[in-house]
Design a binder for these strands. Structure first.
Length: 657
DNA sequence: GACCCTCGAGGTCC
DNA sequence: CTCGAGGGTC
């Protein structure tokens, strides 16, 4: 009875939200919902998570959990003109040989992408893209999107991708409402959607009229699905609202469609910033594969950016972590593509000379990718003679140190490496940043205060801070002081590749940090490495090698490292497993409860380095559940699913520790 | 040519 | 968080 009612409601939601053609009036629908709510209230034991009444979850979350994607979510490479579209097609044709190629053309909706997981036909998880590897668990917020089926026609396991957005009409309504409530209106639908999805309170997210269009099916082990268009049709059958798509037999048809939508984009009820072109054949997609950044079987045609004119009021210089002096144009503020632009980077002196940019010039600007402001060119006939030619300073605007341009580098640098306050400041900001030591709660504002009050000189001094030293600072209370100290202490256990990256050696970023970790396993080994030795390593050439040797030769750097060591920062890492054989290749791990020897992150890194994967939610695809103290509900669920359960000892054994 | 490093703008929520 | 440019290295 109650199930029939739910089915009926689901059907009408589908008619209304997915097909846009309701069969009953809103009032009739409301009555059905009220009836279901009453029944569930009277019989709470009958409530299911996929009931239409359960879209808006209960309490706000404390924070979002991290989700590691089963497949990294790459971004698409871009094409800005016909030529680049043809280049793309030619690369595909080359690999396909004599095979016929079909392309599928879709709208590139300007929202944020989401990864949805269904288990046995039930919606179980929604996540943001994040950095492509790890995203945030926004299951409850996505559940509030009315067109999203909580239950599919078939009891299948699915992983799929879609775009969450706010339709233009909904966006205007939201902003009217915000104005009525004396709140600031949102700048544009994309930012509003991005902000809404990151709301901890699903009730607020529910009020933001989010929509979702699905555009990719990830689990392709489904029988009878060989092409992308079949996958999309399957998703339509399962009740999803699927992105518009059209098949093309050759690239000329694709180009024609791109032209058409460039003209007609405004007719759509949502914003699009381009057209996506995908190879239809899934087997061929597999063959084409991906580069580190993007799949080779798809490309995004980006619409030409909107141009505006404005005036360069001034050019200022900022000094980066490496001493680089970067000129930035201060602009007369203008609205462009949904935001106010008042600055644009000019990158370096050559760029300024190339474009002959002067202070006071009228310039044409655009937003690259509809995001990054860029000076396109100077409107020279608007000059009146009052414009001033910009000169790179010959002394550092922050410390007065000498400025030099080394070799044939494009950048000017402050040569006062050891004591330029700007370089020190940026170096510390880098040290605590997300991909480095990831010290939460320590940001530019706090670092400025610490430097101003001489509480720290370099990043190693962070470890000498205590709560009492923080309390007198602005905007710091008991609680946040304790959190900061805790975060600093926790960071001592970060993995070696993060530390190496955090040190701020020039040319050594996150990637090179990992390579060096694999070869040296400790800071002391690395500090003794010679130029020749380093150059032997794949991916390390003379420039990077010299930079590393130079860094460790500097007395000042040696002192900082000694301080880090004395503070107890972890400086070595066991060789985990021989890289040749990864015993846990692609095995999926889930953790529950606290482990004794490792933090969650350390345990995770151990699994990763042995070739395994870590996910946050259990499914029948999970290989091992590692159980620590006070395990959660996953423990029971694992036995139900028949997932192998390990305690900490078993975990060690499996990893050969 | 692929990839990496460094630097950047603007909006939103925590 | 979103997006990206420029210029470097390999």
């Amino acid at each position: 009875m109650i199930n029939n009612l739910r089915e009926e409601i689901r059907y009408h939601e589908y008619r209304y939200y997915v097909l846009d053609s309701p069969e009953i009036s809103d009032a009739e629908y409301d009555q059905l919902m009220k009836k279901l709510e009453r029944l569930e209230k009277e019989n709470p034991e009958l409530i299911t998570v996929d009931s239409p009444t359960q879209r808006v979850g209960g309490e706000p979350l404390e924070s979002f959990a991290k989700v590691e994607h089963s497949t990294p979510m790459l971004s698409l490479s871009n094409a800005f003109n016909d030529g680049e579209l043809r280049d793309f097609a030619n690369r595909v044709y080359k690999l396909a040989g004599t095979r016929e190629i079909e392309f599928i053309v879709e709208h590139k909706i300007d929202g944020l992408s989401a990864i949805l997981t269904y288990e046995r036909g039930r919606y179980v998880q929604g996540a943001t893209r994040g950095n492509g590897i790890i995203g945030e668990d926004v299951t409850e917020n996505i559940r509030t999107i009315r067109s999203l089926p909580l239950r599919l026609k078939k009891d299948v396991n699915l992983e799929l991708r879609g775009e969450v957005y706010i339709a233009k009409g909904d966006f205007e309504k939201i902003n009217e409402q915000r104005l009525d409530r004396d709140e600031e209106p949102f700048a544009n639908p994309r930012n509003a959607a991005a902000g809404s999805i990151r709301q901890l309170d699903p009730r607020i997210a529910a009020e933001r009229s989010l929509s979702i269009l699905v555009y990719d099916l990830l689990s392709y082990d489904l029988e009878g699905i060989d092409t992308h268009s079949q996958a999309l049709n399957f998703l339509i059958e399962q009740g999803f609202k699927v992105n518009w798509h059209q098949k093309c037999d050759n690239i000329d048809e694709v180009i024609e469609l791109c032209k058409q939508w460039t003209e007609e984009r405004d007719k759509l009820p949502f914003e699009i910033d381009g057209i996506v072109i995908k190879v239809n054949n899934l087997a061929l997609r597999q063959e084409l594969g991906s580069t580190a950044k993007s799949p080779r079987w798809a490309i995004a045609f980006k619409f030409p950016a909107q141009l505006k004119t404005t005036v360069i009021k001034d050019i200022i210089i900022s000094v980066g972590r490496t001493g680089a002096l970067t000129p930035t144009a201060l602009l007369q503020a203008v609205e462009i593509a949904g935001s106010t632009v008042s600055r644009a980077t000019l990158h370096n002196e050559d760029e300024i000379k190339r474009k002959d940019i002067r202070i006071g010039d009228h310039v044409l600007i655009k937003k690259a990718g509809d995001v990054i402001p860029k000076v396109v060119k100077v409107i020279k006939n608007k000059r009146n003679g009052s414009e001033r030619i910009f000169q790179m300073p010959d002394s550092c605007p922050v410390c007065g140190g000498e400025v030099a341009r080394e070799g044939d580098e494009a950048v000017h640098r402050c040569t006062n490496v050891t004591s330029c306050p700007a370089q020190r400041r940026e170096g510390i900001i880098h040290f605590v940043s997300r991909n480095a030591m990831n010290i939460d709660g320590v940001g530019p504002a706090l670092i400025d205060q610490l430097l101003d009050r001489d509480l720290i000189e370099d990043y190693a001094d962070l470890y000498g801070l205590n709560k009492d030293m923080l309390l007198p600072l602005d905007r710091i209370g008991e609680k946040s002081a304790a959190n900061v100290i805790e975060a600093i202490q926790m960071s001592k256990q970060r993995s070696l590749h993060r530390l190496i990256f955090a040190l701020g050696i020039r040319h050594v970023g996150a990637g090179v940090g990992r390579v060096l970790t694999e070869h040296y396993h400790s800071i002391s080994n690395l500090s003794r490495a010679t130029q020749e030795e380093l150059e032997q390593i794949d991916e390390i050439g003379p420039v990077i090698a010299a930079s590393i040797v130079y860094f460790f030769k500097e007395i000042r750097n040696q002192r900082v490292i000694d301080k880090l060591r004395a503070a107890g920062v972890k400086m070595e890492e066991k060789k985990v497993v021989d890289n040749q054989e990864k015993p846990l290749q692609d095995k999926k791990f889930v953790f529950t409860g606290g482990l004794e020897k490792y933090t969650r992150n350390e345990a995770k890194e151990l699994v990763l380095s042995a070739g395994g994967k870590v996910t946050s939610s259990l499914s029948k695809n999970t290989d091992y559940l590692v159980v620590g103290d006070n395990p959660g509900s996953k423990f029971e669920k694992a036995s139900e699913l028949g997932v192998e359960i390990l305690n900490e000892e078993g975990f060690d054994e499996l990893l050969g520790l």
